[in-house]
């Protein structure tokens, strides 16, 4: 139902987004992953008609959103990355205002306000000033405000950054409820691979303004099937030997971990003896070796050379 074609956005010479094509089918829940500055928010702003693409288009049921923003605004709910609320108003007053700008009024508005408050679990505290809320509660109202007009499509831009586990679980439940029970189409942006793995059937991975991989969890993991992951637990810093390890043909990625190194290596590469030699040369002892099959985080690391939350 929603599709972008080669979206490009240039800000004064630098490209924030360079050729992003993605689509959402009705009722789908799709993840959008990427490290800081990947261009996720910019892409979302273009989809939701807040900024005009430098080139490319956004199509809603085949109609250009760039030419006719009104069409998408009616069916779209956007949860912005920032907490876009009036701190000096209560949650209830905020929702009342945001409901009214969506032309809701009277009984219907009241009903919707209480409904979304229920969804985010803040009905009891609706009369308190947003300023006095915890970060997690603000995030939840931030979401509630986007749901008042019962949008067909909801786009969430990192709705769980920097909050307590309880609020986070609540938000994840809300998204599930929206998607599975109300049939809302969801585009979910996050730094957290686990969240996307749980919530979304499909995902796009962005970096440097481009989609570098997309597909279902299984499809993405298949990217790494030719590879193993090697965890080395060391008795000292691994930084010294990392450089030398990278020189090996079979080693695709090296990343420092808390107590050692993580290597992505080609399957059956038999490099263990070489690794041991290098360690000896650097006078580092390998305490333990662990080989495992890749997770999506590993896929990401593999694709971008960085972790999601670098």
């Amino acid at each position: 139902m929603l599709e972008t074609t080669e979206l490009v956005k240039r800000f004064k010479g630098t490209y924030a987004v360079q050729g992003v094509s993605l689509y959402l089918d009705k009722g789908e829940s799709v993840g959008l992953l990427g490290p800081n500055g990947a261009g996720k928010s910019t892409t979302i702003s273009m989809i939701s008609s807040l900024i005009k693409p430098t080139s490319g288009d956004v199509l809603l049921y085949g109609n250009s959103v760039v030419k006719n923003p009104a069409a998408i605004r009616k069916v779209l709910g956007v949860v912005p990355q920032e907490i876009a609320l009036y701190e000096e108003l209560t949650a209830y007053e905020n929702l009342k205002f945001f409901g009214r700008i969506y032309k809701l009024k009277g009984k219907e508005l009241e009903l919707r306000i209480q409904e979304v408050l229920d969804m985010v679990g803040l009905r009891e505290r609706q009369k308190e000033l947003v300023r006095t809320y915890s970060g997690g509660m603000k995030r939840r109202i931030n979401i509630a405000a986007a749901l008042l007009h019962e949008p067909e499509i909801v786009i969430m831009d990192e709705p769980t950054v920097g909050i307590d586990p309880q609020s986070r679980n609540h938000i994840l439940d809300t998204v599930r409820l929206l998607n599975r029970e109300k049939g809302t189409t969801v585009l979910y942006t996050s730094h957290y691979m686990e969240e996307v793995e749980q919530l979304c059937s499909r995902m796009y991975i962005m970096d440097h303004g481009k989609v570098i991989a997309s597909g279902s969890k299984q499809e993405l993991k298949r990217i790494l099937t030719g590879e193993d992951i090697l965890h080395l637990q060391l008795d000292g810093p691994g930084a010294g030997m990392a450089g030398e390890l990278r020189m090996l043909d079979a080693v695709l990625q090296v990343e420092e971990t808390e107590n050692g190194l993580k290597l992505i290596v080609a399957k059956q590469s038999r490099i263990l003896s070489q690794v041991v030699q290098i360690a000896e040369r650097h006078q580092v002892e390998i305490l333990r070796v662990h080989v495992h099959t890749p997770s999506l985080e590993d896929v990401f690391l593999h694709l971008t050379g960085r972790t999601l939350r670098d």
Partner: peptide, 13 residues
């Protein structure tokens, strides 16, 4: 700056 204005635009006001 707080992006509340975005919500106004998004509501097609």
């Amino acid at each position: 700056r707080g992006r509340v204005f975005d919500r106004v635009l998004l509501a097609d006001r």
